[in-house]
Amino acid sequence: MIRTENLTFRYTDTSPLLAFPDLQCAAGERLLLLGDSGCGKTTLLHLMSGLLRPATGTVSIAGTDLSGLSGRELDRFRGAEVGIVFQRPHFVQSLTVLQNLALPGFLSGKGTDEERARAMLERLGIGAKAERRPRDLSIGEQQRAGIARALIHAPSVLLADEPTSALDDRSTERVISLLEAEADRAGAALVVVTHDTRLKDRYANRVTLNPVNEGA
């Protein structure tokens, strides 16, 4: 599960302080973060994943307070406990799809079960593309491969940053369903950050972010 308390952040000493509402999402639950562009959605997501350090407040994942970790520990912890689905999936282009799936396991030191990776690709309908280069896949296939990579190492939190904004209605439905199904399978807390209104009524647990409050 993931929980934030009293989170604030500023990019530089002179830039405005961003304040975020407290959030909580337990294992197997879902949380929708809504808000228009520019209200700090991505910033919040990066704070939640430890890519950014907050000015004040705490983020804790699976009972671990991120602020208590060194940079190196944080990298390792993130690799093991957090999966991120990006708006536009990126891959290490010199490796095959399957090898990209092995990256989180390799980089976090957890190792990767090839059978599990192949089974996951099969479920997502791209099993036949396992040995291909990521750039040979369509955008929709890449998005699905991105989901597989975010979940392959069974993280306790799955963060999805605008996972559907580039997709049409049918693909959106398909991708979000896959995301939910795979998060459930892994028993991960699913946090979806989006301005996509097609998703706004999907979850009861939702928080709407306000535009940046200058001088707060």
């Binding site: 990298d75 690799g79 991120i84 891959f91 290490v92 990579r149």
Partner: peptide, 18 residues
């Protein structure tokens, strides 16, 4: 060219030294 890939690998648990 691979700035994004490198950042990506960081999110997946790679340390900067790695």
């Amino acid at each position: 060219a691979r700035r994004y890939e490198l950042a990506l690998m960081r999110t997946m648990g790679s340390t900067a030294r790695g």
